[in-house]
Design a protein around this nucleic acid. Structure first.
Length: 208
DNA sequence: CTGGGGATCGAG
DNA sequence: TCGATCCCCAGG
């Protein structure tokens, strides 16, 4: 009514354009913090804030599936244009979701490692078969289970499909922690590279 | 064809 | 710390 504050102008959330994903992969990983990961499931909106990511830097990154220029059936989506989803199966039972970055032929990606869910919690709790909210998306395989993301979404466009990422709150640099990535002990010197990004003091990240 | 291992999770 | 569980993929 008589409000003179900025709340009278609602912030419009819009889907990130393909250009967002074509940029430097570390920048994309950092900039994805605070954005909203959204999945439309049977006309229901499931969504949450991305609070943790990791960058995978392609042919020169010993931790990446495309290290050394490998082209395989599994990793071929990473070789395509930025802006699509790379979903892979791991450890015999889990799926992980990446946003492919850069242009075709530069096979890099950002792993989404944790999401703070804010919409569609009933359905998400069903998929996860738990109700504790801090446990719903605090890991790359957990958030895939929460959104029912499996191999059939490998390769879909984040710019056009029912799986996408929206604008969100701006996260200041002072609120971002940068550390080595998780679960890549096999990756020689790259295991120390600071390519994991997460929001400081956030309760929904995968590890302390 | 084969077998070693994995961008994880949860129980003990 | 360890087992689950199975697909991937390099090597023969």
């Amino acid at each position: 009514m008589g409000s003179t504050r900025s709340s009278s102008r609602p912030s419009v959330k819009r889907r990130l354009p393909q250009e967002f994903y074509l940029r430097d992969t570390k920048r994309v990983a950092r900039d994805l913090l605070g954005k909203r990961l959204v999945r439309i499931h049977n006309n229901t909106r499931l969504a949450g804030i991305i609070v943790e990511t990791e960058a995978y830097l392609g042919v020169k990154d010993p931790a990446a599936h495309t290290y050394g220029g490998r082209i395989t059936e599994r990793n071929k989506v990473m070789w395509g244009e930025g802006g699509s989803a790379y979903v892979y199966f791991v450890y015999g039972m889990h799926f992980c979701l990446n946003a492919v970055t850069r242009w075709a032929g530069q096979p890099e990606a950002v792993l989404i490692r944790a999401v703070q869910f804010t919409e569609g919690l009933d359905l998400i709790k069903n998929f996860r078969e738990i109700s504790e909210e801090k446990q719903l998306g605090n890991g790359p395989a957990k958030l895939c289970q929460a959104l029912n993301i499996t191999r059939n979404l490998n390769g879909v466009s984040l710019v056009q499909s029912d799986l996408f990422i929206e604008d969100g709150d701006l996260i200041r640099n002072s609120q971002i922690i940068c550390r080595p990535r998780v679960g890549i002990d096999y990756a020689k010197e790259a295991k120390h590279w600071p390519l994991r990004f997460y929001i400081k003091n956030n309760e929904f990240i995968s590890k302390k």
